[in-house]
């Protein structure tokens, strides 16, 4: 069992490595993608400077906590889009019968299908998070905690993307639903938890898992709490299990479209 997991991780990393090498074929485009993504994220600092000039406390967050919230948004988004980019186009893969080539591989079908491409600009997201971590003057322990929570968040986002994409096994053209669901998470993830209340807040800890990818991590980074940290790890396990269960349940309904594609 442990050997199988080790092998799977090894294959996944090799897959990611070659996907990255493909992206780096045109170095100028690659660097521009990364650099402009950092600028793109940094531009939102201006938005928060304006908001904090109107009121000193926004949803119980200080300006530094909003920066940390953005660091988590960028790192979780970056990890998910870099390592598991294909999870975001899995709907198309299913709808157009492109899963065939993964079915014959002697490795986990879902992991092989979602790790076969990387998004170069997601490196910009991860670097942006790193820059914020550096300027936030965190302790080594906090940096380690940030990395663990970011990985958990990235995995939860990926699991959500897989679940939404798996709807394609049952529904036609559900890619729009998947896109809407994934965008929804990003929109909420960049605003402090305290401004929301009622049903919206409930949704942020259930079907829109921003509470576990962003809000609890920011809280844990400010005031460390073992229980909350374990809750994030537990939520990650739950979302991953749900993603695998739904994907494999849907896979039973999958039928090939006899599409001929070359995988190089």
């Amino acid at each position: 069992m442990l050997m199988a997991v080790k092998n799977q991780i090894k294959v996944t990393l090799v897959s990611v490595k070659y996907a990255l090498m493909r992206e780096m074929l045109n170095k100028w485009t690659f660097l521009m993608n990364v650099f402009f993504m950092i600028l793109n994220n940094a531009s939102f600092i201006l938005q928060w400077i304006v908001i904090y000039s109107l009121k000193q406390d926004i949803g119980g967050y200080t300006f530094e906590q909003v920066l940390l919230l953005w660091a988590f948004t960028a790192s979780t988004f970056g990890i998910s889009h870099f390592f598991f980019r294909k999870a975001y186009s899995l709907s198309d893969t299913i709808t157009y019968g492109k899963l065939d080539s993964y079915l014959v591989q002697p490795k986990n079908i879902l992991i092989s299908a979602i790790t076969s491409e990387v998004d170069a600009s997601a490196i910009g997201d991860m670097l942006y998070a790193l820059i914020i971590v550096l300027i936030s003057k965190l302790t080594m322990w906090q940096v380690l905690l940030f990395m663990i929570l970011s990985i958990c968040g990235g995995v939860i986002l990926t699991a959500l993307a897989v679940i939404l994409a798996s709807l394609s096994f049952w529904l036609n053209k559900s890619d729009m639903i998947a896109d809407t669901g994934n965008n929804m998470t990003t929109h909420f993830a960049t605003y402090p938890e305290g401004i929301f209340n009622g049903i919206v807040k409930f949704l942020l800890y259930t079907i829109i898992p921003v509470g576990f990818t962003n809000y609890i991590p920011v809280s844990v980074m400010t005031n460390f709490d073992w229980k909350l940290t374990l809750m994030v790890i537990g939520a990650t396990a739950f979302w991953v299990a749900a993603a695998f269960a739904i994907f494999y349940k849907g896979l039973r309904r999958y039928s090939s479209s006899n599409l001929m594609i070359a995988k190089i």
């Binding site: 045109n26 100028w28 485009t29 993608n33 402009f36 600028l39 793109n40």
Partner: peptide, 11 residues
């Protein structure tokens, strides 16, 4: 002029 103008659009 450049292969991918999308990053300019992001900005």
């Amino acid at each position: 002029y450049i292969e991918d103008a999308n990053p300019l659009f992001w900005l």
